[in-house]
Amino acid sequence: MGNQVFSVKSIAKSFGSEKDGNYMEVIHDVSMDIAEKEFIVILGNSGCGKSTFLKILGGIEPATAGSMVLNGRDIGTAIPPEELRRFGFVFQSNNLLPWRTAEGNLKLMLQIMKLKGEQWNKRIDEMLDIVGLLDYKSVYPHELSGGMKQRVGIARALVHDPDILILDQPLGALDAITRKMLSYEILNIWKKTQKTIIMVTNNVDEAILLASRIFVFSNKPAVITHEIKVDIPVEERNHQIGQNTRYNQLREEINEIVRAAM
């Protein structure tokens, strides 16, 4: 296994306070070590706190307790602003700004991160090309289909060249066919860009297709109940994966686990 790029140590998150009677513990205790170029998938039922966990990793919310270690440096309970450049966040609903074109949405990321110059402008084109939307550069989001919007969302999360890509149920809002196609596309993007990816999903098939390791979250307050290494070689992950015996074994095993948790 490669270098540890990112570690999460005993992260916990709660909202409200016991005094006001609205205390709610969402994440109890989650730890994981993530190696370079790994594809981590977090599986869990809806409302189990997995999205909250990603928001902590994406610098959107601080944890209540625990710490995170980024490239050997302890950064505490929240990602400091100067480290946000290392992360790219893909939202469940594409979350594109409707007043900006596909290109404009990617440019926003560069503007906010203060990344100027010709090489970055070229990178906008490269990323739109990777998701297959170079021809739609100057098109507004309302003219794009749901799957295309989400692909722009993925390109946006990659444009500033982050180390870690965070995907919060990126396929959740799509129809079944688009969902399947885009899951293969994410696999290709991972192969091409060699990024470390952390993704949340509630779909077992997707998880096995994409993941190097799968973490299963319990219901709220979340802890990790299972860690499963997906030992299917990258070359064998393609449209024929359904005939792979190991795939079907894992599929049965994980479905069993998920059923038991419900």
Binding site: G59, L84, S93, M109, Q111
Partner: peptide, 27 residues
């Protein structure tokens, strides 16, 4: 809220958030 979260995930300061996200959202 998700637009605020987007700006947070980018590390945008309050003024940039206001000019590039809040103002056009409320236009």
């Amino acid at each position: 809220t998700i637009r605020r979260e987007l700006m947070q995930s980018m590390g945008a300061d309050p003024i940039k958030t206001y000019l590039k996200m809040t103002l056009p959202s409320a236009a």
